[in-house]
């Protein structure tokens, strides 16, 4: 299993904060975003983290991972 999390405005927009999904071999972080939101890509102002570390959207996902998506932190911009 993998755990997905949304924070702040993204959680409000999509109406959920946490859910679990079955892991599929070859899945990347960006694939999870697209599958859960129906969008074709990750918007420029959405950041992602794998196991609580910022990561690029192309990062591979493994069983037991926690993947989070959130807007830029309020303190300012964060290049991903």
């Amino acid at each position: 299993m993998i755990t997905l999390k949304l924070f702040a405005s993204l959680a409000e927009t999509h109406g959920w904060r946490e859910r679990e999904r079955t892991w599929v071999a070859g899945t990347r972080v960006i694939d999870l975003w697209c599958a859960e939101t129906g969008q074709s890509g990750l918007p420029a102002r959405v950041l992602c983290a794998r196991n609580m570390d910022y990561c690029p959207p192309e990062t591979p996902v493994f069983p037991g991972d926690e993947i989070a998506f959130f807007p830029p932190v309020t303190g300012g911009s964060h290049a991903r």
Partner: peptide, 21 residues
């Protein structure tokens, strides 16, 4: 301010808004 994941939502007389910068 630039790295730690915190997000501010302000309460105004007219409603609420997320701070984006």
């Amino acid at each position: 301010k630039s790295q730690a994941p915190f997000w501010k939502k302000e309460r105004l007389a007219t409603g609420t808004r997320w701070v984006t910068g």
